[in-house]
Simulated assay, not measured.
Amino acid sequence: MPDNAPCPCGSALNLDDCCARQHRGTPAASAEQLMRSRYSAYVLGAIDYLQRSTLPAQQAGLDLPAMRLWSENSRWLGLEVLQHEPLGGQPAHARVSFIARWADAQGEHSQHECSAFVEHQGQWYFLDPGVPLKAGRNDPCPCDGGSKFKKCCGPLLP
């Protein structure tokens, strides 16, 4: 996809002025911007970016081949951001509620999700609910934010 094409995330910007900036290494300014850039990464097959933008403590648990397969075998139909909810805290947390649409060999699909994010050292990360964190309630949080897991990222994960 050319960089001057409309950004897949649905913003009014072209790809080069929007999500491609995060894909090239510019930190997302908000959890919503990170979530939009992750959707665009699925559209573009940028699985390495999806891995880098997931909480580092969860990256080794990602099923990268499955993510790549889903990205490549889907025709991405659009993203609708419903709500961006900054939750504050130290480190900062946020939730982003959205609907992603795609089509594959089985037909058209949509996924309504409310994703959780944490900011650490100026970088936002996705908290993947499908990758368990190996931390007890009183253990330090794997986001390295300095708090106990039960007071930091723990309440945002199932």
Rank of each mutant, 00 (worst) to 15 (best):
H120D: 13
L77G: 05
G25L: 09
G122T: 08
L87A: 13
A94P: 00
A12Y: 07
A135M: 12
R21T: 11
A31L: 00
V43D: 07
V118N: 01
W76T: 14
P155A: 10
P132V: 14
P86H: 08
C153W: 02
A116I: 09
A57C: 12
L69D: 14
R36W: 04
L62E: 10
G88E: 13
C114T: 14
W76M: 08
Q90D: 15
T26C: 11
H84V: 06
L157G: 03
D144M: 10
L79G: 12
G154L: 05
Q83P: 00
Q106K: 13
P155T: 06
G45C: 05
A20G: 03
A41W: 01
P132M: 05
P27M: 10
T54P: 05
I47V: 15
A20V: 07
E119P: 01
Y125S: 08
V96G: 03
A116D: 14
L82P: 03
G89N: 02
P6D: 14
W76Q: 11
H93G: 00
F149D: 08
V81E: 04
L13A: 13
V131W: 13
P8W: 03
V43F: 06
C9Q: 12
F98H: 04
C153H: 03
C9H: 09
Y39I: 06
L15S: 11
C141F: 07
D139N: 12
